[in-house]
Write a protein that binds this DNA or RNA. Structure first.
Length: 427
RNA sequence: GUGGCCGUAGCUCAACAGGUAGAGCACCGGAUUGUGACUCCGGAGGUAGCGGGUUCAAGACCCGUCGGCCACCCCA
C-alpha cells in the first residue's frame, strides 16, 4: 500500500456505488421540487463562532468533533459539521426571511469521530429548512415529504417514524432541573457515560443504551409533565395531521436531540437494518435559532438526512437503480477503419445524444476487441475492419438480447447505420 | 477518546505443531487464415501493512505502529 491514502473516515465513492447515489439524489430533488422547495448552495467553511453559537458550546460536536483551523489571517474557521447553522446564517445575511421560505441543500459535512458502519468523518447530508411558519402544519408537511421520499425510494417498509416534543425552552429548563435532581439520587447506579452527561447534557441520558440506566429512568420524572400548553397542543395537532395523511408514527418520550437549538417537535426516522447507526433522517423545530444568530425572531423547522446511510439501505434492500452501462461498443481494426468509425460514431452521437456509445481505444486484434465489447456489457458491437473499409460498410453484431429479442449479425451500408440503431434502441 | 476482531497476489481466501507462499475469480496471450460468452492450454502478478524482538530459521510467536471492520460514545 502506498503511503498516500485517503484520510481516515473520508472515503472514495466508487463507480459501483455512484448509481445508488445518483438515484437517491435525483429522487430527493424531484420530491422536494414537488413540494415547492428551492435549493440553496452554501459554503463548506464558516467561521467557528457560527457553530459554537448555534449547535451549543457544550455539545460533543463543538467540544471535540470539529475540524477547526486558523486561516492565513488568523481567523478561526471550521469545516461545517452540519448544515442548519450555515443555512440560517445565509438566510439572515441575504434577507431571505421577509416571507416564509422553504429551502434545501446538500453536500459534505465533517465530524472528527471514530468511523464505523454508517458513520464517516466526511459524510453527506440533504438538509431541508422551513422559515417563518410557527404552526404544526409546517412540521407535518416536512414529515409527509419524508414519507413520500421513502415511498419513491422503495424504503417505506424499512423505516419507522419516532416523534416527540421537547417543549419550550423554559419547559425544558424546568424539566432538566427536575431530571438532574432525580438522577443525582442515583448517581452511583448510573453508567459512567451517563454520570458524565449528568453535568454536560442531562437530557441525553434519556436515550442511553445502558439497560440499568434505562431502568432507573423508568421512575424518573417525565418530560411530558413539564410541557407548556402550546407545545402540548401543537404536538397533538401534529399527530392528528399525520393520522389524516396516513403516516404511521410512534411517540418516543425519551427522544431528544443532541443539538441545543431544538424545541417543541423533534422526530427521527429510524431503521433496524444498519446496525448501531440506525437514524437515517432527523430533525425538529428550532424557533429560537434565527434570533440567536442575530436575525429577526423567526420560527423554523427542519431536518437532515444521512446520505451514506440511505445508500446503505438501498444496497441492503437491493433496490434497483439505473445501472450506467453502455449500449454500443465500437470495434475498429487498423488505422483507416478507426478513422471511418470515429467519424461515423461522432455523427451518431450528434443525432442520438441518449445512445451510450463506447469506442474501443488502444488497438488490438479483432478478436480481442470483440472480447472487450462483450465484457463492456454493450448490447451491440459495431465492427469496422478490412472488408468494411473496402466496401464502405459497417457490421452490426448483437452481443445479447435487447428488448427480449436478439438480432442477427448483418453488414449494412454506412448510410443505413443510424436508422438500424434506432431499430434496436427505441430510446 | 475506549474496547473487540482483523491486515497473505487486483478481489475472495488457503496452507504450515515456526523451515524462505498457493487456489478460485479477475487480467493478458493462444487453441489454422475476420468474431465474444462455454471449454482447454499458457502467462503475468506478492520483499506476507510497516518497524522492532524471540529463534539456526517467522507470513506464522511477542511488542510497537499504521490501517480496516464492528461496537461504546456521538449523531445524519
Amino acid at each position: 500500500m502506498s503511503e498516500l491514502r485517503a484520510i481516515r473516515g473520508m472515503s472514495d465513492i466508487l463507480p459501483d456505488e455512484t448509481p445508488y447515489w445518483q438515484f437517491l439524489e435525483s429522487t430527493v430533488a424531484t420530491v422536494l421540487a414537488s413540494y415547492g422547495y428551492s435549493e440553496i448552495r452554501l459554503p463548506v467553511v464558516e467561521k467557528t463562532a457560527l457553530f459554537k453559537r448555534s449547535i451549543g458550546e457544550v455539545t460533543d460536536i463543538v467540544e471535540k468533533e470539529m475540524y477547526t483551523f486558523d486561516d492565513r489571517n488568523g481567523d478561526s474557521m471550521t469545516l461545517r459539521p452540519e448544515g442548519t447553522a450555515g443555512c440560517v446564517r445565509a438566510a439572515i445575511q441575504q434577507n431571505l426571511l421577509s416571507t416564509a421560505r422553504r429551502l434545501w441543500y446538500t453536500g459534505p459535512m465533517f465530524r472528527y469521530e471514530r468511523p464505523q458502519k454508517g458513520r464517516q468523518r466526511q459524510f453527506h447530508q440533504v438538509g431541508v429548512e422551513s422559515f417563518g411558519v410557527a404552526t404544526p402544519d409546517m412540521d407535518a408537511e416536512l414529515i409527509l415529504m419524508c414519507a413520500r421520499l421513502w415511498q419513491q425510494l422503495g424504503l417505506t417498509d424499512c423505516v419507522e417514524l419516532q416523534l416527540n416534543t421537547i417543549g419550550s425552552v423554559q419547559a425544558r429548563g424546568a424539566y432538566r432541573a427536575a431530571l438532574v435532581e432525580y438522577l443525582q439520587g442515583h448517581v452511583d447506579a448510573l453508567d459512567e457515560d451517563s454520570q458524565r452527561r449528568l453535568l454536560a447534557n442531562p437530557l441525553r441520558i434519556l436515550d442511553s443504551k445502558n439497560a440499568d440506566t434505562q431502568a432507573i429512568l423508568d421512575d424518573a420524572p417525565g418530560l411530558e409533565d413539564f410541557l407548556d400548553d402550546e407545545s402540548r397542543a401543537d404536538f397533538s395537532q401534529l399527530g392528528e395531521l399525520l393520522q389524516v395523511a396516513g403516516v404511521n408514527f410512534v411517540v418516543n418520550r425519551r427522544l431528544v436531540r443532541g443539538l441545543d437549538y431544538y424545541n417543541k417537535t423533534v422526530f427521527e426516522w429510524v431503521t433496524n437494518k444498519l446496525g448501531a447507526q440506525g437514524t437515517v433522517c432527523a430533525g425538529g423545530r428550532y424557533d429560537g435559532l434565527v434570533q440567536q444568530l442575530g436575525g429577526k425572531a423567526t420560527p423554523a423547522v427542519g431536518f437532515a438526512m444521512g446520505m451514506e446511510r440511505l445508500v446503505l439501505l438501498l444496497q441492503e434492500e437491493k433496490i434497483a437503480t439505473n445501472a450506467p452501462g453502455i449500449d454500443v461498443y465500437v470495434v475498429a481494426v487498423g488505422a483507416e477503419a478507426y478513422r471511418m468509425a470515429l467519424a461515423a460514431v461522432e455523427r451518431i452521437r450528434g443525432a442520438n445524444p441518449k445512445l451510450r456509445i463506447m469506442q474501443h481505444t488502444g488497438g488490438g486484434s479483432l478478436k480481442s476487441q470483440i472480447k472487450k465489447a462483450d465484457k463492456s456489457g454493450a448490447h451491440v458491437a459495431l465492427i469496422w475492419a478490412e472488408d468494411e473499409v473496402a466496401a464502405g460498410s459497417v457490421t452490426m453484431k448483437s452481443l445479447r438480447e435487447s428488448n427480449g429479442e436478439r438480432i442477427e449479425q448483418r453488414t449494412i451500408a454506412m448510410g443505413e447505420l443510424e436508422q438500424a440503431l434506432r431499430g434496436v434502441f427505441a430510446h
